[in-house]
Amino acid sequence: MTDIPPLPETLQFTADGLIPAIAQQFDTGEVLMMAWMNKNSLAETLATGRICYWSRSRRSLWRKGDTSGHIQKLIELRYDCDADSILVLVDQSGAACHEGTRSCFTRRLEIDGSISEAETAYPTKIDESARQ
């Protein structure tokens, strides 16, 4: 790995040393996925410009796209006001989800409790009468 850039000391990692990271397509705003980062994956992401997460199941660094070819290039990285979540603005090539869809957020929970599938993570137009 290349030199590790300094990380803000204000970032709040869990007791396991992790922080949630939401990946969002930089130019469309589409929410693509949620994964975890640790200090090493975050540092590698900043140093290389390619998104690297921490795989909890494999207990190792996970460079997005190493096996699928669907890499995420870092455009910008932000963190929230509590410093306990990261927003990673990316340029996603291909599918972000391991199920082969563009986004992991395609299951829509309906008001009646049923589940439907959406093609993308873009919200459908909401009927104003349904908000009341």
Results as ranks from 00 to 15, higher is better:
Ala118Arg: 13
Ile115Pro: 01
Ala96Asp: 01
Ser103Ile: 01
Ser103Pro: 00
Ala95Cys: 11
Ile115Asn: 01
Ala121Pro: 01
Cys97His: 03
Arg107Val: 02
Ile115Arg: 07
Thr124Tyr: 06
Gly100Met: 09
Arg108Gly: 05
Arg102Pro: 04
Cys97Val: 06
Thr120Pro: 08
Arg108Ala: 05
His98Lys: 03
Cys97Phe: 00
Phe105Asp: 04
Arg108Lys: 06
Gly100Lys: 04
Gly113Val: 10
Thr124Asp: 09
Thr124Trp: 14
Thr120Phe: 08
Glu110Leu: 15
Ile111Cys: 08
Glu119Pro: 11
Pro123Cys: 09
Ser114Asp: 06
Arg108Thr: 07
Ser103His: 04
Glu119Leu: 15
Cys104Arg: 03
Arg107Gln: 08
Leu109Met: 11
Ile111Arg: 14
Thr101Ser: 01
Cys97Trp: 12
Ser116Met: 07
Gly113Tyr: 13
Cys97Met: 01
Tyr122Thr: 13
Ala96Cys: 06
Thr124Asn: 10
Ser116Pro: 12
Phe105Pro: 05
Gly100Phe: 05
Leu109Pro: 02
Ala121Ser: 13
Arg107Thr: 06
Thr120Asn: 10
Thr101Asp: 00
Gly113Arg: 02
Ala96Gln: 02
Thr120Ile: 10
Ala96Tyr: 07
Ala96Ser: 04
Ala118Trp: 06
Cys97Pro: 00
Arg107Glu: 05
Gly100Val: 09
Arg108Trp: 05
Thr120Trp: 09
Leu109Trp: 10
Glu110Pro: 11
Glu99Pro: 12
Glu110Gly: 07
Arg107Pro: 00
Gly113Ile: 07
Ala95Gln: 04
Glu119Asn: 13
Gly100Asn: 02
Pro123Trp: 07
Ala95Pro: 00
Ala95Thr: 12
Glu117Lys: 15
Thr106Ala: 04
Tyr122Phe: 14
Ser114Tyr: 11
His98Glu: 08
Arg102Gln: 08
His98Trp: 00
Ala121Phe: 01
Ser103Thr: 04
Ala121Val: 10
Gly113Cys: 12
Cys104Asp: 06
Ala118Asp: 09
Ser116Glu: 13
Glu99His: 09
Ala118Leu: 12
Ile111Val: 14
Arg107Asn: 04
Cys97Glu: 09
Gly100Tyr: 06
Glu99Phe: 08
Glu119His: 12
Ile115Gln: 05
Ile111Leu: 14
Arg108Leu: 07
Arg107Ile: 02
Glu119Ser: 15
Gly113Gln: 04
Thr106Arg: 14
Ser114Asn: 10
Ala95His: 04
Ile115Cys: 00
Glu117Ile: 15
Thr124Gln: 11
Glu99Arg: 13
Ala118Thr: 13
Ala118Cys: 12
